[in-house]
Design a binder for these strands. Structure first.
Length: 596
RNA sequence: GGUCCAGUAGCUCAGCUGGAUAGAGCAAUAGCCUUCUAAGCUAUAGGUCCCAGGUUCGAGUCCUGGCUGGAUCACCA
């Protein structure tokens, strides 16, 4: 039922027979015909003019005649300039619909043990503050590409790497000790990550005060920033932590546990599941040996003060430090180690890091250093770099309080979904728990779709008003269409209408065949989204599909159709559209409600 | 300054490996609820695809140079 594959093969045959020339499959440009033009598939004939030595129109004409003659599926053709438009006989489209209708999740591929093994790392939060809008983009992208790769039949593991150690968490800990008054999530009523985050902010405020005081006392500003007592104290705390001193270590465990509880709630709200969570406290010592080995082989260089560097000037980059003069690891060292470990442990074919574009340089270096160290698999590291999320007022800055908190945002979306639904009277007669469930589904879908529909690479503007708008190109619009389809199906069942139809059905309406063609294209879109790691392709596809169905819905009555065969076909087509929407949305991590 | 990324309608964004007359939504204007859910549909209006060259049958898409905006170039992570 792969029309495009059949046609391509026949075109190659045709060129051979007509013009005695061999063409490669890549030269055969076959695309879906534009909506306004008659036909289903369009062959671009320009590349073949060299062989035919005839005008574009003539060449197209000859190829068209040949194909209609040889390929049963092709009913007719027309030529516009250098474009040969081929029309598939209706009965084949109908047969295709039937076949697709019979599949559970049409378009997706089941994983096999031999399939590619991919690890996707995303989220990667720090434990000193709650998740914000930037994390949301990261998490949604990571989750979605995990799902898309699975739909492409890959063996995928979604992993989180928690940055649970370092000076940042010591700052929160110190502030808690000094000004916390034994506050806990229970006693304060705050979510653990928010509580800890508040102390991080508190630290920063007090630290700023100290700097100001020092400057007033005549210190140079830089010096003041480096020598403020609070900072020195935090640094001392980090040293104590590295020595695993009991008091510091247990406080660290306690506060991190609060944060994890808080994160767990947010992940659950968002419907995110990880196969495994890594902690930097357990991995930050990895990689040192790799660096020392590299030093021994003279791949890396040691400076007079004892620090170890990679010279990347030949790669048009700078020198990069890998071990400090005191022999301790840096961020890069750790990443060298974890990558090595993961490839060794899981025999990975590919490793994808979902990390913001501010770290492009880091991953560029990571890859080059690993290659220099002689690891061939470095080629299979991929940094899925995404752009920042900005607000209409500019960048998000935690210090200026312009950060959009993840939990607040989700809560606000749910509240808006509820009031909007109420106003429209959509929730009348439903129980409280049903209302909860539906509004949650709508809110999350709105958020996910809003974020995922834009190309990951691009910096995006987060317009609060627009993100919460449920009209037009939005998640809820898609959900709404799905809900309407379900409503049709319920009624069809009530009336006892069947979805079985004969193969020889014909005379489909324009909108119907357009819909079938769009659905036909779904597997190709999934493949492409998998290859490009782009949920945006899925999002834009499902929006198109939804729009098409809506037009169809308004133009053509389904249940009132008198012709039983045609009616059955339309009901089945509606269901197929619904299933396709559902599958596509699931690739974005979004659910579709049965009613709304 | 070096490197990387982006620039498409008033705004937010699509536009797949170069293909036909550059598309949606929002905002604006005008219509459509005795009908399978109006979170919808239809119509109108809105464009120097940042600029200039080049490659070719054909460039929003590829190449070169510029302009604008962003990221990054720490013994931070």
């Amino acid at each position: 039922m792969d029309f495009d594959i059949i046609i391509k093969a026949q075109v190659i045959e045709a060129i051979k027979n007509l013009y005695s020339a061999d063409v490669h499959e890549k030269q055969v440009q076959l695309q879906l015909t534009r909506k306004e033009i008659e036909g289903d598939f369009t062959l671009v004939v320009f590349p073949f003019l060299r062989m035919s030595k005839k005008s574009p129109e003539q060449t197209a004409e000859e190829l068209g005649t040949y194909l209609v003659d040889k390929v049963a599926e092709i009913a007719s053709f027309n030529v516009i300039k250098g474009f040969l438009n081929l029309e598939i006989a209706e009965k084949y489209w109908i047969a295709f619909s039937k076949q697709a209708y019979g599949q559970k999740s049409f378009g997706t591929v089941e994983a096999t043990p031999e399939a590619e093994k991919v690890m996707v790392e995303f989220s990667s939060p720090n434990t000193n503050k709650p998740l914000h809008l930037g994390h949301i983009r990261n998490i949604l992208l990571g989750d979605s590409i995990t799902r898309i790769l699975k739909a492409n039949g890959k063996n995928v593991q979604a992993v989180n790497l928690v940055n649970d150690r370092g000076i940042h968490i010591c700052k929160s800990m110190l502030a808690w000790q000094k000004w916390g008054e034994h506050a806990t999530p229970d006693s304060s009523g705050l979510k653990g990550d928010h509580l800890v985050g508040d102390y991080y902010v508190k630290f920063d405020q007090e630290y700023k005060k100290e700097i100001k005081q020092l400057v007033e006392d005549g210190f140079d500003e830089k010096k003041a920033a480096k020598e403020a007592p609070l900072l020195l104290e935090a640094q001392a705390m980090l040293r104590s932590w590295e020595k695993k001193e009991e008091s510091v270590y247990s406080l660290w465990q306690k506060m991190n546990a609060w944060v994890y509880d808080g994160f767990a709630v947010t992940y659950k709200q968002m419907g995110i599941v990880f196969d495994k969570t890594y902690y930097e406290s357990e991995t930050f010592l990895l990689g040192k040996q790799l660096v020392l080995d590299g030093l021994e082989k003279n791949i890396l260089i040691k400076k007079e003060d004892g620090s170890v560097w990679a010279d990347l000037t030949k790669d048009k980059l700078d020198e990069k430090i890998l071990l400090r003069s005191d022999g301790t690891s840096v961020y890069m060292t750790q990443d060298l180690g974890t990558a090595h470990q993961r490839f060794a442990d899981y025999d990975l074919d590919r490793h994808i890091y979902v990390v913001g574009n501010e770290q492009n340089y880091h991953f560029q270096v990571l890859k080059i250093v690993l290659k220099k160290l002689g690891f061939d698999w470095a080629e299979h590291l991929f940094h899925l770099s995404y752009g920042m999320v900005e607000l209409p007022t500019g960048k998000m800055k935690s210090r200026e309080g312009t950060v959009v908190d993840a939990d607040d945002l989700i809560e606000e979306m749910i509240a808006t979904a509820k009031t909007t639904s109420m106003e429209l009277g959509k929730l009348d007669g439903l129980s409280d728990s049903e209302i909860e469930e539906i509004t949650h589904t709508i809110a999350l879908c709105a958020l996910k779709y809003f974020i995922l529909k834009v190309d990951p690479k691009k910096t995006m503007t987060f317009e609060p008003k627009e993100s919460i708008d449920f009209n037009g190109n939005t998640g809820p619009f898609i959900q709404y269409t799905y809900a309407r389809i379900q409503s049709i199906l319920r009624k069809a069942e009530e009336l006892g209408y069947s979805t079985d139809y004969a193969d020889d059905l014909s005379n489909l309406e324009e909108k119907e065949s357009q819909l079938v063609k769009t659905i036909y294209n779904f597997p190709a879109i999934i493949k492409e989204a998998g290859a490009n790691l782009s949920p945006a392709l899925i999002a834009n596809y499902v929006y198109d599909l939804t729009k098409e169905f809506n037009q169809f819905y308004h133009d053509i009555s389904i249940l009132k159709e008198e012709n039983e065969q045609l009616r059955s076909f339309r009901i089945a087509l509606a269901e197929l559209t619904g299933n396709t929407i559902k599958t596509a949305m699931s690739l974005l991590g979004a659910d579709v409600p049965v009613r709304m």
